[in-house]
Computed example of a mutant assay.
Amino acid sequence: MNITSSLLEDPSSSDDYLLEQVTRWNIDPGHVAIEVVESGIQSLSVLRRFVERYRAYGFLIALDDFGASHSNLERLVELKPDIVKIDRHLVSEVHASHYKRSVVEAINGLCHSLGAISLAEGVEESQELECLSSLGCDLFQGYLLSHPLEDYDSSLTEVRKRVLWHASQTALRIADSARGVHDEITRIVETGRHLGRELQRLSRIDEQLSGLIRRLPDIQCAYVTDLHGMQITETVFNPSTGTREGVLFRPARRGADHSLKDYVYHIRSLGAPHFLTGAYLSRATGTLCRTVSVKTYTKEQTPVILCIDIVQA
């Protein structure tokens, strides 16, 4: 149920009209979500008083258009909503944008840690539904599933069929995607292992590492640390990959301490044979990458850690 700013700021709203209506029609307030349309609401104190009063009656509170316009973290903290509706501008083409996926995933994590349900609004494509499901969204709203209903009773059966069909298809696609991710991780880790084996044959690591990675175009750069995480080579770049130069992005140099980075720590302190990070912005190149690290040995059988940045599509 959408509530406009005029209702919140009109003193006559104190007559508890909504409570009277749910009582009249014998509806449990816990089955009604009050969706506050925030645009135009200037007073947070007015909004908070409204929310507190109707939450005390048992209504659910939904924060609309989160991630756009007036929605912000302050209102999330102050209103403590039961449902957070992720704005459609973040939802649209989310499957095609790493940045949107990262933001939506972060919003979902924030909602769940605060005890709120996340709802993606404006879902119009099956690829969006699949992606949003994999990112942890709880509920979905949009034309893909249903247009607004005028005749609720006669349309509900058809809507239920459509929702169940999309749910089954999404589950199948997520399973296929998971297998694809597993295969990609296996490929990346095997690339790291292969280079680790090749490293054992090199007599001059600094000079020959460049030639080693040049043969693999999806590698951005590589370097080697000792088992304590101290870098013992320079960072070697693959000339076929691009970089962003500037004060924020520069490669680590010989002697840099990587001991607390997860891809070194898991090998150094936890005994893992290899490690693969999630996608992140490389401080060496200024582009998205994943780092695979592998414990290997030099030609003299000295244990080292080979760290490789892989291009993230």
Rank of each mutant, 00 (worst) to 15 (best):
L195C: 05
W25L: 15
A313N: 10
L7A: 13
L306W: 04
A96I: 08
E245H: 12
F275R: 05
S282F: 00
S14N: 15
E38Y: 12
T287F: 14
D16V: 10
G109M: 07
L260Y: 09
Y17V: 02
F275C: 05
V94S: 15
Y223T: 12
P217E: 12
C307D: 03
V84T: 03
K80M: 00
C289L: 00
Q127M: 14
A106K: 12
V104G: 00
D218N: 10
L8C: 05
R48V: 08
R253Y: 01
E300M: 06
Y99Q: 09
I213Q: 13
I267Y: 11
G136N: 01
E130L: 12
D176H: 15
E124Q: 14
R201V: 01
V247S: 15
L19R: 13
T241H: 05
D16G: 06
Q208G: 03
A178P: 07
V292T: 08
R253T: 06
S293M: 09
R187V: 00
T302V: 10
R88C: 02
H98D: 01
Y57M: 12
E125K: 12
T291P: 02
I232T: 15
E20M: 08
P251T: 06
S45V: 10
I3L: 09
E74A: 10
A167M: 04
A116N: 07
G58R: 10
A252P: 02
R197D: 11
F50E: 09
I305N: 07
G278S: 08
E52S: 04
V123P: 01
E38P: 03
V247E: 13
R24D: 09
Q141M: 06
I267W: 14
R215N: 05
R204K: 11
G271I: 06
K299A: 07
S13V: 06
S45F: 12
K100T: 07
T235H: 09
G136C: 02
A106M: 09
T191M: 13
R75W: 01
E78Y: 06
S39H: 14
G286T: 10
L248G: 04
E198D: 15
I27C: 13
G180Y: 00
F66S: 01
L164V: 03
T191I: 05
L79W: 02
S269L: 07
Q220Y: 15
P29C: 03
R244C: 04
A62S: 14
E300N: 04
L90P: 00
S240G: 01
I305R: 11
L164C: 08
H182P: 07
V22I: 14
R53W: 00
G286Y: 04
S240L: 14
C221M: 05
V77W: 15
L212K: 11
H266D: 08
G278D: 06
E234A: 14
R48P: 02
I310K: 13
E35L: 01
L281C: 08
A106G: 04
